[in-house]
């Protein structure tokens, strides 16, 4: 019951923020192009790509980068995902040092990786470790869309596999946020085999009675959706996330017609029986905690 009141309070709070926001938003637009300059020196604003409204970065952080007006879930980094999901300061990273060796000697790949590593401060497209969510300890893995579209090469596959293995050894639940364009082309067959490797590791973890919560976020496609991402005991998805095997463009070219509205979106998958629930970003943490409790973790 107290949770109910807490939720109510949160709702009231967000409504208040929303009202306050609309006012400043109008004021800002009236004043011309000054939306960029905040009063407290924090100058950035965030524009919702769907409804085109602009909000101060601080408010959007609080909203977990969900548009307060239209509910659009803006893409977030792996760090933001971590911050929005786990108890603060509970994260212990694993396997941060793993990096690719350019296994098929693909021209330009090594340099490309180097430059993305410099931009992102990460060795490859997955962030893995242990953390607590409302006090429940778990193994968490987050794919990072800013690192080559979260594509799965040998490093991402290895890190997911190790996360599953660690969860199995330590008898911890496994939580994976997928967000990926699919298998990483530049590693050829080495990428394809990650599908088998990660799926086998999840299967083994599952046979030992481990709980795997898979959260599909925008976008989860190809080799990632056709391997570990769809093997969760509990399948969650963020509203509007594009989830599928083949990309919409490829399907349109193949069948020679436009795809219907909402095709391959999270809600479509729920309707067709492939996810348990479409959960908005602000409810994910409480839902994950609830699922963990229900499984006696």
């Amino acid at each position: 019951m107290s949770d109910f009141f807490k939720e109510r309070r949160k709702l009231l709070f967000s409504l208040r923020e929303l009202r306050g926001k609309n006012n400043t938003g109008k004021a800002g637009s009236n004043a011309g192009d000054r939306a960029g300059e905040g009063s407290n020196g924090v100058s950035s604003t965030v524009k919702c790509p769907r409804c085109k409204r602009e909000y101060p970065q601080m408010l959007m952080d609080r909203k977990k980068m969900v548009c307060p007006k239209c509910g659009y879930h803006l893409p977030i980094s792996a760090e933001e995902r971590l911050k929005f999901t786990i108890d603060s300061d509970s994260f212990q990273e694993m396997d941060a040092e793993l990096e690719t060796v350019n296994p098929i000697h693909f021209p330009g790949y090594t340099n490309k990786i180097k430059s993305i590593q410099n931009q992102t401060g990460r060795k490859d497209g997955a962030l893995c470790g242990t953390a607590t969510v409302r006090g429940h300890k778990l193994v968490i893995a987050i794919l990072d869309h800013s690192f080559m579209m979260g594509s799965m090469g040998s490093v991402v596959g290895e890190k997911i596999t190790r996360a599953a293995e660690y969860a199995m050894e330590e008898k911890l639940p496994l939580l994976i946020f997928s967000c990926s364009g699919g298998a990483r082309m530049q590693e050829g067959m080495f990428s394809l085999m990650q599908m088998a490797k990660t799926s086998a590791a999840i299967k083994r973890f599952s046979e030992q009675g481990g709980l795997y919560i898979s959260v599909l976020t925008h976008p989860t496609m190809g080799g990632v959706s056709a391997s570990f991402a769809t093997l969760g005991d509990i399948m969650l998805a963020e509203p509007g996330a594009l989830i599928g095997f083949a990309g919409p463009r490829v399907i349109e070219q193949t069948i020679g017609q436009k795809l219907p509205e909402g095709f391959q979106r999270a809600e479509f998958l729920q309707q067709h029986g492939f996810v348990d629930a479409v959960v908005s970003r602000d409810k994910l943490r409480s839902n994950i905690a609830k699922i963990l409790t229900l499984h006696c973790y």
């Binding site: 799926s199 299967k203 056709a226 769809t230 083949a246 069948i255 095709f263 391959q264 067709h272 492939f274």
Partner: peptide, 25 residues
């Protein structure tokens, strides 16, 4: 695997993932 409308509706990804996981054991 076929990139089609019905294939996605019927869970192409899930069907493939299931094969990979089950074959491994």
């Amino acid at each position: 695997a076929y990139p089609g409308l019905a294939a996605e509706e019927h869970g192409q990804s899930q069907a493939i993932a299931e094969c990979l996981a089950e074959m491994s054991s």
